[in-house]
């Protein structure tokens, strides 16, 4: 489903150039649940941003379902992100002054859905995550776990094929983190491809496969033996 080859990404100019990715290559199959592990500064979040079309790469190729993702066209990247990707980030990225319903409905706006259809989709998604009773609450009125559920709801409401999560349990306590992890597993079992960036080995172990990133390149990968539906991803 996803195949990247020799992806390069640098930040800064002249003397202050930082090479975040130095020719990284990997592939992820449809339906896989993959963890990307590495220390801080290893380039895993940059990798996730490039996979999700949030950032363009400076070099290399990105094939999605066999088709080249054109980094030069912002329009195409936005379209790719809108239709194929659901993002979940560490600190939830919820909008404080929008209630839960409106936060989750954000990706559906300007997509041509009727108000009725948006309401139906949002409420169904909230119900699937067990937070339908929080629809009118504001993010600051929710616990960390509930906020992350809202963020997940926002990521999945538009039915993307891939869920990208950047340290999704990083801001949560252990028990809540496990609950969130279970949600990702359920999403994966329902056919979503899930890529989780984490430095938490416990989170990574619950994925089908772990890809280790160090200094902007893949250091190795290992199968975890978890009961994912679609085994067989390879670096």
């Amino acid at each position: 489903m996803i195949r990247i080859e020799n992806i390069v990404k640098t930040f800064g100019k002249k003397d202050a150039v930082v090479e975040a990715l130095r020719g990284i290559s990997l592939s992820v199959r449809e339906g896989e649940m993959v963890a990307v592990m590495g220390k801080s500064g290893s380039g895993k979040s940059t990798l996730l941003n490039i996979l999700g079309g949030m950032m363009s790469a400076d070099g290399g190729t990105y094939l999605y379902n066999g088709k080249d993702v054109n980094f030069k066209s912002q329009k195409e990247l936005v379209k790719f992100r809108r239709n194929e990707i659901g993002f979940v980030v560490q600190y939830f990225a919820l909008v404080d002054d929008l209630n839960v319903f409106r936060n989750v409905a954000l990706p559906l706006k300007y997509q041509g859905y009727s108000r009725k259809k948006i309401t139906k989709k949002v409420m169904e998604t909230l119900a699937s995550l067990g937070i339908e009773d929080k629809a009118k609450a504001y993010p600051f009125e929710l616990s960390g776990g509930q906020q992350q559920r809202v963020a997940i709801a926002r990521a999945v409401v538009k039915s993307p094929r891939i869920i990208l999560a950047d340290e999704p349990t990083g801001a949560l306590d252990e028990a809540t983190g496990e609950e969130v992890q279970k949600i990702f597993r359920t999403l994966n079992e329902n056919g979503k491809t899930v890529i989780i960036v984490t430095h938490d080995a416990k989170v990574a172990e619950k994925c089908d496969r772990i890809i280790y990133v160090k200094d902007g390149i893949v250091e190795g990968s290992s199968e975890t033996g978890q009961n994912g539906c679609h085994k067989g991803g390879s670096v």
Partner: peptide, 16 residues
Amino acid sequence: RQLFYAWKLSGYRKCP
């Protein structure tokens, strides 16, 4: 910023 980031995550085009 939060809102703009959420729009970016949601794949909003420039016009919206």
